[in-house]
């Protein structure tokens, strides 16, 4: 009997450890980023690091200002949201409310495929189709620019926006729509003036999820944005927070490498903020 109790206890303990594993991983990531990110920030000084406009990590007089990266990430994400959200939103309303079941099934598969395509494939197609096209259409010397990155990001966040919005729209109680229809509103009016407001927290969550995806994307953006640490401008080569980390990591050392960890810490803080917002909307949606 005693032996049995011992076994039960041990097993309980093992499962407890496994259960706490996710918490442990989050702590591990946070601790590593903070420990490795703080030294460079104190050495460069927080203000100069965050608001310095010049990044010249390999120059004789190195300068570590990451404002160009922060602004590029913010503008790039905003641009992707501006283009991707309306398209995703209207497609989600159509697919969840109006489309016939066959079209809906096919489009759901198509959207899943879009979500599953690896980011390097987006980068490759962007590099060979989008970048030359941007160069031709806007008559600029190099098409690898913030604009190209925005287009690629807009496409990449489309599946998250469509899927999450569709789930929210499908959860709207049928009675709401029936009541609106009975009062003489047309179906289209009902969907946009009754269903959409009823699903607004879910749709907001979809947008926030899109923001998270866009700000965290590295490889696809690296292949189409030109990767020069300029202050952001639509048709110039730019560097994002993610690509700043990725592009110099393999050959960096000393303060330069520590500064890259600090950039990752800044990116991490952005993501944590976005996660908290996402959670807020998801909770609201549940209630």
């Amino acid at each position: 009997m005693k032996k049995n109790k011992m076994i039960e206890r041990t097993i309980h303990g093992i499962f407890l450890i496994l259960g706490l594993l996710t918490v442990g991983c989050v702590l591990l990531i946070t601790v590593y980023l903070v420990i490795s990110g703080i030294p460079a920030i104190t050495e460069i000084r927080l203000f100069d690091f965050l608001f310095g406009t010049k990044w010249a990590s390999t120059a004789a007089q190195p300068s570590y200002g990451i404002l160009p990266f922060i602004l590029t990430s913010v503008y790039g994400t905003a641009g992707a949201i501006l283009i991707g959200v309306p398209i995703g939103f209207f497609a989600a309303v159509y697919l969840s409310k109006l489309a016939n079941p066959k079209v809906k099934t096919i489009m759901e598969e198509a959207v899943s495929l879009l979500a599953g395509i690896p980011s390097v494939v987006y980068g490759l197609v962007g590099m060979l189709v989008l970048v030359p096209a941007v160069r031709e259409i806007f008559d600029i010397p190099d098409g690898a620019s913030l604009f190209s990155a925005i287009i690629v990001l807009a496409i990449m966040i489309l599946p998250s926006i469509i899927k999450v919005s569709m789930t929210a729209l499908e959860a709207v109680p049928k009675e709401y729509e029936d009541a609106s229809l009975a009062l003489g509103a047309t179906p289209v009016e009902t969907y946009f003036k009754v269903s959409v407001p009823a699903a607004k927290s879910g749709i907001a969550a979809a947008v926030v999820l899109g923001v998270g995806r866009a700000i965290g994307e590295a490889m696809a953006v690296m292949m189409v944005s030109g990767n020069v640490p300029n202050m952001p401008s639509l048709f110039q080569s730019v560097r994002f927070l993610t690509t700043a980390v990725a592009s110099e990591m393999s050959y960096s050392s000393g303060l330069q490498q520590q500064a890259l960890f600090s950039i990752a810490l800044v990116l991490f803080l952005f993501i944590m903020l976005i996660n908290a917002t996402l959670n807020f909307f998801l909770k609201k949606e549940k209630d």
């Binding site: 918490v23 591990l28 590593y32 490795s36």
Partner: peptide, 25 residues
């Protein structure tokens, strides 16, 4: 709640950060 929040946080972290921490750890 804490475990589920941690799981959600993990799924929101960009892969480049995983790469960095993976390299360090």
């Amino acid at each position: 709640g804490m475990i589920e929040y941690a799981a959600e946080t993990l799924s929101g972290i960009p892969s480049i950060i995983y790469g960095l921490v993976g390299m360090l750890f």
